[in-house]
Every structure is written in C-alpha cells, then in structure tokens.
Nucleic acid binder design. Structure first.
Lengths: 334, 334
DNA sequence: TTGTAGGCGTTATCAG
DNA sequence: CTGATAACGCCTACAA
C-alpha cells in the first residue's frame, strides 16, 4: 500500500509536490515531474480514496437504491444508470431498499455518498429531510409516489401513456377491463394505476373496483391472483374482456394463470401491459405492451443528476420538465 | 453534519468519551453515557464512514463486479449477494466490468473496498496480483476461466451437470447435437461448453465443431446466429436434432429464430439449457433446463467470503470444496 | 518552483 | 473512568 509519503521519499521531493503532479498543476518543473511520475509508476501508487474523500468532502460515489432486482425492468434501468455513472467518473453504492430500514440506511450512507438516486423507491419524509440537512441531494428515476415534493424526478408521462393504452383497448372493442397492480400506494405501480383509471374513465372504459387484482409487482403473486379470480367464478365467464397489467411481469403471470386454467388469450381475455421488458416478445402469446424507454431514463436522469452534483448547487433551475414518451407495441396478447 | 466534536461539546465531555459510548465500552459511567446518547440523538450524529475507514483501514464495503445486468441470471445472483452483504453489515460497491478497463478499476477501488467479489468475470493475472499485493482478497461466484489459481470460487459441478444433460438427450433418442455458446474463452460460458463436450463424448453424443453456434451469451445475437444457421441450409434439414444452450437467454433466442423460420421445437429441433431463469417456463415452448441454485450460490458464497474478511486471514483453509448441484426441469422444448 | 503545516473526523494509546 | 494527543493519507494556502 504505497502512500504519497513513500512516493515523495523515493522521488526526493516533498509530499506536496506529489499532489501537484497528480493534479497536473503546471507549476512543477518538468524534471521534477518526471522523477515523481517514475516513483509513482515504480511503487504502483494510487491516491487513497478514503483519505481524499475525507479531505475534499466529496466521495464521487452515489447511492443507487433499488427495490427488487429480480424484475428485469429495474435491472435494465440499473444497467444504464451504472454505465452512465461510470462514464462520468463516479461510482455506484448499490443498496436494495426496504421501507423500514431507514435508520440503517442513514448510517450506511453517512459521509460515504455525494447523492442518492432512487429507482422507483419512496422514502419517508423524515428521511428525505435528513439527507437534505446533510447536504446529500436526492433524485428519482420513476416518479415517486407520496410526498417527495422536494425531490426532482424523471419518468414517462403516465397519463398520456395510459390514455394511449385505454384508447387502444377501446378501439379493439373492449368495454370492461380489469387491472393488475400493487396493493401499496407507495409502489410506483400505483401511480400507473391511477393514471390508467383516469384514462379509462375518459375513454369510456368500465373498470370496476372488484376487477382490480393485486399481483404485488411480481410474477408469481400475479399468477396466483389471476388464478384465484378465475377459480372464484366457478365456471362462469369473466366479467371483463381485457386485463391491463401495471407491469409486464404481472401481465405475464396473469397469462400463465390463464393458460393453466384454459382461458384463452386474447380470445377470452386480452392482456396488455406497459414496460416491454426482455422476453415480453417471447412468452405465449407475445405480449402487447407499451415500450418504456429505459435507456433514455437511465442515461438522461443520471447525467442530469451527476452534472448537478459536480456543479455544486448552481444551474439549479435547468431541469427540463419534459417527460418521456412511450410507444405501443402490438403483439398477439391483446 | 454533526461531528463527534460537537457531540462532545454538547454533552460536556471529551471526544474520546463519545467514541467509548459508541463502541459500547462498558467503562463509561452510566450518567455520562446517558448525556452523550442524548447529545447524539439531539444532533442526529452518525460517525463519518470516510474518517472511520481511513483510520481503521477497513471500509466494510466490498466491490461486486458484474458482466451484464441485462441477463436475468446475473441480476438474480446480484439480488441474493446484496441481500447477504447487507445482512452481514457490509455494503456493495457495484461495478460493471469490462476487460480492458483494469487501470480504471484499480483507481476506483483503491482504498475503498475490503474485498472483491467476481460475478463470473475473469480478471487479468496482473490485476489479480495487484489486488493481492494491496491486501484486497478476491472471491468468485461462478468458476473463473483462465488463470485465477489463487482465487477461491463457488459454482455448480459443471461436469456432473452437463453429464446429466447429455444423458437426458441421449435417452430422448438424440445423437447429433448442436451447441450455443460464447466465443470468448474468458466467458464463464466456455467452461460450461467444455464440460458439455466432455460429457457428450462420454455419453456417445455427436457434436461437430461446425455445429457450434456463437450467441455471445445474449438473446439477440443467439437469435441471429440460429437464424443464420437455418438460412445457410437453403431448405435442407438441420444436421442435428437437438441444441443445447450454455445459458437460457441463448436457448430462448434460438427458439425464437426457429419459430420465425418455421422450424418446430421440439419436433425438428429439441432445445435444452442450463440455468432456469425467470420466464424460462413461460416462453413458447417452455424451456427444458437445468435449475441453477442461484440463491444458494449468492448466499453461501458471499457469507463465506465476508466471514473470511472479518476474521482477518485466519481460518483460511476452511473452504469446503463442495460444489453445488443442479436439477433437471423437463418442460416442452426438449 | 518547492516545502511546511493545518486540518478533514475517526480511533487508540497513554497518562491523569 | 476521562482527557489529551498522535496518527490515518490527502489537499492546499502560504511561506520560503
């Protein structure tokens, strides 16, 4: 573990000079510089990032808080986030967040990150205030749900998107539609559900409260919920002709349940969704879904946030309130 | 940003006492302790992790190097790794690794992590030596390919697993089988391919070199490779009756290509694979595959590694050379 | 152009 | 039991 001191000794200069060379201060004489660089090379010296962080009060590390990596949607976003973070010379502190471990989170992050990037998570107000007080900015990819007034975010325009989806269903002749979402209002899926409900009302679709199924954002719970809904009919026909999933995994879970209980998709039940994850084109039948611009989300959101971090608090008001757009990919499921 | 100094002032004690309280040294008088705890509470004080790390030469952070998060197989492992790391009181420095950015990696990690966990990546020998010299241990989930003699790892027993797969194909009456793998011998898929080739020879399967397709571990390249193989036949029959994918994504890509070119699976071509990722049961037709124990891998491997980190270098020889087992899940693709 | 010294927030040693 | 004080490795204003 070579330190700066050792480099200085080997090069026969003082420690400060080593720093000057490291930071490309042009004030160092060419020959001294060469000597120092040689010593650095020889010892394989690299600055200790803890020490530097302590001194500079800047870690060049940002926390990325995710919910559930088992969902390809979130994993796909993380992929692009990390890539962008890396390109901008920062590093990722990766943490899966569960509401209720906030105390632990504060400890874990204290002094270790320059900012926090939320991947669809909703923090408690108190926690947000805490980090604000610490001078640790927060940015959110995917719109946060409750609270978060001070938190900037980037997401698609869900109202426009859901309007698009509702219109499509209407065009296909559907009137009664079911909805699969997450029970918790803290989930980012709830926002999508609200937007769909508004769009459904606006386009004249019928979506009764008892047609709302809860798949908790994941495949198996969704499968179970759909199965339960089918079984409870005792052989009668489904009261709706279409199901819209608030994410692809749940839509796929529902289709799986249908297949196992001989409900044909899309004839007896059309299924549509709104992410377009990997393999959504490969399930049976291929899923009709909106395409979420994940790369754009990860790339643009992260870039904006880190640039802001680098500039200090200046250029604060530049956030372009443009939301992202989604395209509908019509396949065979609905 | 309350510091220890401020806490000490508020509580009317010296800084050292604050540390004693923090570390539960029972030598502090009950009343002093109470005063200090109050001050901590009031100021919302938490130790700065950079300062602590610098002093202790221990960061309680480990680097996790991944290849491609777009693959549910790797994302699924990360999920369990992170969970375990968190439970053991450590944190994850997340980094996507590309061969060729080793210099950058060394800088980025210097002094910031206590250890490195490889998720199927292969580092250069020189890099391994570097970290060894720095006293940063490396552990690998999934067996590393070339070199890495000094690196401990955990993986399934690929020879046994591939023997199982080859035997199954043989039982099903197949003789000529194709293989879909990654071109680079640095990829962890190459190890699987080697193992399969050995097993194929052992069980009497025929697997000609020109039947080896390269899907680069991902869906779309695999799809393209399979498509190219089919097209090049100009309408003649495939020279093999089964294809074994070195991961599920490639097997699915191959199936997709078959569907689009009207090659029926499994009648004209049986497809099998060896991971069992999410949705492998939902594609058309559902994929016959070995089930990789990802949770066990992430949980056991990470636990072993972090415990070792905590104990210093002691208990070095306890690594149980037991490899993990896989089960075959027979579905409709082969 | 180069060296000195103070300090970032901790922990640990050693007196009181 | 408690209080100074010396590191940990680095950066930077200021002095030489």
């Amino acid at each position: 573990m070579a330190t700066r001191k050792q480099v200085a000794e080997l090069a026969g200069v003082s420690e400060a000079v080593v720093s000057y060379v490291l930071h490309n201060k042009s004030i160092v004489k060419e020959e001294t510089k060469r000597k120092v660089l040689e010593a650095i090379e020889q010892l394989g010296y690299r600055p200790n990032l803890m020490a530097r962080g302590l001194k500079m009060r800047q870690t060049r590390q940002i926390a990325v808080l995710v919910g559930y990596m088992g969902n390809p949607f979130e994993a796909g976003i993380l992929l692009h986030v990390e890539k962008t973070v890396q390109e901008l010379g920062y590093a990722v502190f990766f943490h899966s967040y569960n509401s209720g471990t906030e105390e632990r989170l504060k400890e874990l992050l204290h002094g270790r990150v320059d900012g926090i990037l939320l991947l669809g998570q909703s923090l408690h107000e108190e926690t947000i205030a805490h980090f604000a007080a610490q001078g640790v900015p927060i940015f959110s990819l995917l719109q946060p749900t409750v609270g978060h007034e001070q938190v900037e975010w980037l997401d698609v325009d869900w109202h426009a998107s859901m309007w698009q989806l509702a219109s499509y269903l209407k065009e296909q002749g559907h009137v009664r539609v079911a909805l699969m979402t997450h029970r918790s209002e803290r989930s980012y899926l709830s926002l999508r559900a609200q937007a769909f409900l508004v769009a459904a009302a606006g386009t004249g679709l019928q979506c009764e409260p008892e047609w709302i199924l809860y798949g908790q954002g994941q495949f198996e719970p969704a499968q179970a919920a759909m199965l339960a809904a089918i079984v409870s009919l005792r052989g009668e026909e489904l009261p709706y002709t279409a199901l819209v999933g608030m994410n692809d995994l749940m839509a796929m879970g529902a289709m799986s349940a249908c297949r196992h209980s001989f409900v044909s998709v899309p004839q007896q039940l059309a299924v549509v969704s709104c992410e377009g994850i990997l393999l959504s084109s490969e399930v049976a039948p291929p899923l009709t879904t909106l395409l979420y611009p994940r790369e754009q989300l990860g790339q643009e959101g992260t870039t904006y946030f880190i640039r802001k971090l680098m500039n200090g608090a200046e250029a604060d008001r530049t956030w372009p309130e443009t939301k992202l757009q989604m395209d509908l990919v019509v396949r065979q499921s609905g």
